[in-house]
Structure formats: C-alpha cells, structure tokens
Design a protein around this nucleic acid. Structure first.
Lengths: 215, 215
DNA sequence: ACTCTTCATAACCGATCGGTTATAAAGTCT
DNA sequence: AGACTTTATAACCGATCGGTTATGAAGAGT
C-alpha cells in the first residue's frame, strides 16, 4: 500500500507491527502469509526479517504489544472510597468494556490458547500475572476484614468465573448467535449481559447492588 | 499409517473423518494439510476428494459429526421429580462435563468463532439451536409458576453466563494458567470451578443448594 | 571524502500447498 | 464372460509458502 519512502526505520517497523496485529488477530498465525503482511505494511518482505527475525518473531512482538494494552487498562486505580459492591461492579465493567473494545486482544488470546500456548511456552514472561487478580484480592480482603462478606473461597476461582462471564460474549459470538438467537455484537445485549453478570457475583457474595438500582 | 486394504469404502471414509476431527481440532483448517490427513487416515490423497469433494467438504463433515456429539449428550431427559436447584445443577454439571470430556468440540467451536463463522454462514443448518436452552426455559418456567423464583429475566442471558462460566475453564486453559496460576486441566480445580459456578447461579436465583450440602 | 552500519529492493530458492490426471484393480450387474 | 461403477494409487500440476541472496542507497562517525 503506502510505500515507506527512502529511509524511515521507526515507521517501517511500526507498519509491520500494526499489519501483523490486524492480520494475525483476524486469521491466526497459519492463516496469514508474510507476503500479505508486508503488502499491508507497504514495505518489502526482507524488512520483516530485518526487524523481527522471522514470522514467529513478528507474532511474538504482536502478542507483547496487545497484552500491553490490557495491562494498561486494568492497572488503573480504583475509586478508593467506593463500596465493595461498587468496586466489584467497576472491575467487571472495566474488563468487559476492554474486551468489547479490543477485539484483537480477544482473538489473539484465543488463537494462542488454541495453539496450546506453544508460543507462550517458548517465550516465558510474555504474559504476566493478571493485574485484575490483585485488585480483586484487595477488595475481597478489605470486605472480609470489615465483615461485609463471609465466604473465604479462593479469589482466583471467582475471578475465572467473572472473566468467563465476560469473555463468552466475545469469544463465542458467532456460534452463540445461532445457538440462542441473540446478537452478541449489539451493545444493548452486551450491556444486559454485563448487568446480569454483575448481579450474579453480588448475589453470590451476599452484597446488595450499589445505589444506582437498589435504593 | 494403516493402509486401507484393497476395497473398504466405509472404513476409508471413517478413517478420513476421524483423522480430520483430530487434526482440524488440534490445528484448525489452515494449520493442517491434506497430505497429513490422508497419511493419518492411511489412504491416498485422492480418496479425500472422492468422499468429501475438497478440504472444506471434509471440514464441514467434521463439524457436523462433532456437533452431533453435543446434541446427543444435552438432549438426554432430566430426572423429572428433582428440585429446581438440583435440576439447574444437573444441566450445568452435564454441560461442564461434556466440555471437559470432548476437547475436540471445544476447539472446533473456537476455531469456527475465530473464523467469524464463515463456514457456518456458508452451510446453514449445520448448527442447530442449543437444546440446553429449551431445558433451562422449562425449568425456570416451572419454578416461576410454583413461585419458587421471582426473577423474570431472559433465560437466554442466564444461559450465556452459565455456558461462559463452564467454557472459560477449557477455552482459556493455557493463558489462565499463566494469568492466575491455576492448572485448569486438573480435575480438582475443574470440580471446584463447577461447584462455584453452580452456587453462583443458585444464589442469583435465590435458591438454596440441593440437599447434598445445604441440610 | 571515506568508511561502515542500517534500511531498503528485486529476484530467487527449495519445499509444500490444495487439487487433478491417468490408470487400474475390486466389486456388481446382466 | 463381459460391461460398468466404485474404490484405490502414483505421479504430477501451477501456485504459494516461509525464508535467503545479491545488491545498493541513505545516514552517521571520522
């Protein structure tokens, strides 16, 4: 497409990375050829090998870049004076909204899982511990010390279910549409799904919903 | 591998289908070559084109075969005299157990979603409505008519969350392992995840857990 | 001005891709 | 026995795959 001009190191690398993110997310590692990537990046095939070593090198860089987008969103501090229920709803809403916004993240995560984490295994440290787990732990411990909740279950299991209730809306969009006849891409449907998920977690913890609805 | 012998129509077709299920599930449509499939099926490449037309034809047959496995499990009748809570737990346990057992189903479903349902769109009727939705609807309506529950939310949304809480354990096995440091392949971890998911749904519906635990 | 590293291109490589052609043996029907 | 359909094989096809070689221009250091 847009040629790279005579010399422009940063831009060529950036173009390749962006093209890689878009194409790998949309069709996976095996589904994309390097010729297509360099065509979209507007440069020669040799440049990919110059900047990233090989196709897999670009793929790793793509994963790093997209994981960084999640960390950036999920490490944002929470409103310190909010109620426990409000904080639970907030981190769920953040996670849900991030998945809804960053389709490329969702797809790359799924590709990597389908690949049985082979790339992740070969490049340890690519994916760090979920920052959201630390937030949830802090919230639950504080609530427990104040006697607001009694359950002492492993917060990791609770987090998995919270993530699962969000993730399903985006990971299984197309098959769910056929299976239950709901358009998961519709923001209204998504909002309803999030609302129900939040209610479910609050009900499990025995917390009343925050002031918005519960009076 | 095992050669097909002089003539054996059913077996060659079956071998190809089985090989296709295993290989497409493990590496997706683009990740597998026809040469590899026929090698595992123990027959010549030409046979694949004879029985299934082309590579995509085999892929469609694979999806059909694996979807049929789910329908078979999830249309089994429920114990008619059980409590509402027990029935909810039962359908969740069944769904969870099916996903835990049939890894190929989980992966093929994810491949197809990542492919944005292109195959599903090209072959309508391949995936039918989820039979589990009908079961859930029946349970909820009966409970509602008996006044056991009050919520009149769309059962489709509840089902999505139930599926999501089960699915996440298998769809994101490898990345979750790194993100929250839990081995999702461990049956004990899985059992705990299911237990928590069941509790969550029951808590949301305002139902006491069935006799097993609640006394 | 001279060298040296970096950024870039075009042409090309062997291997593999999905799919086809040519051919024939095994079974089936009359 | 002879004709015809079905099941099978081997060899091959053009296209494309990921990756390399050969080459040179642009910028930086001296």
């Amino acid at each position: 497409m847009t040629t790279c001009g005579p010399r422009n190191p940063g831009r060529t690398r950036g173009n390749l990375l962006r093209a890689g993110i878009r194409l790998f997310a949309s069709r996976g590692f095996h589904g994309v050829g390097v010729a297509e990537i360099v065509s979209e990046a507007g440069c020669n095939k040799r440049m990919l090998y110059h900047y990233f070593g090989d196709k897999e090198g670009l793929y790793v860089a793509v994963l790093q870049a997209v994981y960084a987008r999640m960390e950036q969103v999920e490490t944002a501090p929470l409103p310190p004076e909010a109620s426990t229920a409000a904080m639970i709803c907030e981190i769920m809403q953040r996670h849900f909204h991030f998945l809804a916004t960053d389709n490329e993240f969702v797809k790359l995560l799924l590709w990597e899982n389908l690949n049985e984490g082979r790339l992740l295994a070969r490049h340890p440290g690519l994916l760090t511990k979920a920052p959201i787990l630390h937030q949830l732990r802090t919230i639950l411990e504080a609530a427990q010390s104040r006697g607001e909740i009694t359950a002492a279950d492993d917060p990791r299991h609770l987090l998995i279910l919270m993530i699962g209730m969000c993730f399903i809306h985006f990971s299984n969009q197309h098959t769910l549409r056929q299976a239950v006849d709901l358009d998961m891409a519709d923001p209204h449907i998504q909002a309803e799904g999030l609302r129900l998920a939040q209610q479910m977690v609050l009900a499990y913890l025995g917390l009343a919903p925050p002031e918005a609805n519960g009076v």
